[in-house]
Write a protein that binds this DNA or RNA. Structure first.
Length: 412
DNA sequence: TGAAACGAATCACGCCCTGC
DNA sequence: GCAGGGCGTGATTCGTTTCA
């Protein structure tokens, strides 16, 4: 703790600190004073500045190391006002680089702020402004690379828009999801990005009632109007199935996720579309459901290996489950793709160097940036700033050929 | 139970000083 | 004398917690 305080002191006292305590960089940088960044950076230690105030408080960067009452030790605008003999209003405006404050005064105020170890109080600022510059990202399963990848991307894009994000994992559990929503509302986030569990719509209606901007990520409710950004799941299911059909497969297994999840429903519809287009009868024995959470595919793999499911190819709900089935089949002596081709969804492993490359359906556009962009527009609209908003966005998909699928020997 | 306090920002004025 | 820049003043606001 002391080390961190010392590092902060170095950054606040050395010339490396920007002249402007609130670095001017449009919305994004204005939302994060440079002092906040200082505490994150690595640096050498340096002696601290201890400053007595008129109120008899000792202030300086050592304050954070003692485990005392931090609230009483924080340097405030009032302290700087007392020290400089200026008003609180002038201090505030000088630190925010307002035009009606002279450069001489600004420099003086910044110097005293640095000397005293002033750190912008985002909590107080949020209180006054009615915004926290934070976005909650609520997902069902962060262990799924699809979500972890996109959450990382969301964080990056949101940061570029001046927002801090925090992520909550719901384990696809409805009660945990409600708790996550309530927690986010209590923290007065400016907006929420949520991949809903979709057990029911109640949680999202609750969110809607609270009038907080939100965007559904990767999932949607057909019969209720809520902003969403999804991939074209139906077309994805169609492309995956068509790929196998055109490689000679006729007995194609559909391994779908829980059908209360819109993406699972729509991918299955796409599967059926392709079968219908090529005149292949829909066989209920070749449609199997699995949990959205990986680790429950043994039954399916055993059934394929044991001939209980007579298929030569499989369209699988997502890449994680597809890879799991591939692995299980290999252990059971079933060769992929020679004995059974597999097509996954999300094309997530194309981003990593893995021993095996799945054939998979992936998005052609950027899901994260589209989602953040929509949410930011909704937030701005709520604040009264006019903004054109497309609230239902379906991103195109394409099939990416990997090693897990191939032409059926002897197939047409 | 209700008032006060917390910290920062905002607003509407108003004053002072300087230059023309 | 006037205009305008620079800054001050005091009230108000926000949501939560503390205290009487």
């Amino acid at each position: 703790m002391e080390m961190r305080a010392a590092q902060g002191a170095r950054l606040l006292t050395e010339a490396s600190m920007n002249d402007n305590v609130y670095e001017e960089c449009g919305k994004s940088a204005a939302a994060e004073p440079i002092t906040k960044r200082a505490s994150r950076e690595e640096g050498a230690q340096k002696s601290l500045v201890i400053v007595p105030t008129k109120r008899g408080r000792t202030i300086g960067r050592t304050n954070f190391s003692g485990g005392g009452d931090m609230k009483n030790n924080m340097v405030t605008l009032k302290d700087i006002a007392e020290r400089t003999g200026l008003s609180i209003n002038t201090i505030s405006r000088a630190l925010r680089n307002k035009d009606d404050i002279s450069e001489v005064t600004k420099k003086r105020v910044r110097a005293v702020a640095r000397e005293m170890g002033y750190m912008h109080n985002a909590l107080a600022s949020s209180l006054r402004q009615g915004q926290t510059d934070t976005i909650a990202v609520i997902v069902g399963d962060i262990s799924n690379p699809f979500f972890s990848w996109h959450v990382g991307e969301i964080e990056r894009y949101a940061r570029g828009c001046g927002y801090i994000t925090y992520m909550i994992n719901t384990e696809e559990d409805e009660a945990l999801e409600l708790r996550a929503i309530r927690n986010s509302l209590q923290r007065k986030v400016d907006g929420i990005i949520i991949a809903p569990s979709q057990h029911s719509i109640g949680n999202l209606l609750y969110l809607q009632e609270n009038n907080v901007p939100f965007v559904l990520l990767s999932r949607r409710f057909r019969d209720v109007s809520m902003p969403y950004v999804i991939q074209d799941d139906r077309r994805g299911g169609y492309l995956a199935t068509k790929h196998l059909i055109e490689n000679g497969h006729r007995e194609i297994l559909a391994v779908h996720g829980p059908l209360y999840i819109s993406s699972a429903q729509e991918r299955l519809q796409g599967y059926e579309d392709a079968l219908a287009e090529y005149g292949i009868r829909r066989n209920p024995d070749l449609i199997r459901g699995v949990s959205a959470i990986p680790g429950n595919c043994k039954n399916v793999a055993n059934a394929i290996a044991g001939g209980e499911i007579p298929c030569t190819g499989a369209v699988v709900f997502n890449d994680v489950i597809a890879l799991e089935i591939w692995y299980l089949l290999k252990k059971l002596g079933v060769r992929v793709p020679e004995d059974c081709s597999i097509v996954g969804f999300d094309n997530i492993y194309a981003r990593f160097s893995t021993p095996y490359q799945l054939t998979s359906v992936g998005i052609t556009a950027n899901l994260a940036s589209s989602t953040v962009d929509m949410l930011v527009r909704l937030i701005r609209r709520r604040k009264g700033e006019s903004a054109d908003i497309e609230t239902e966005k379906v991103l195109d998909v394409k099939l990416v050929q990997g090693e897990s699928s191939g032409r059926l020997p002897g197939g047409s």
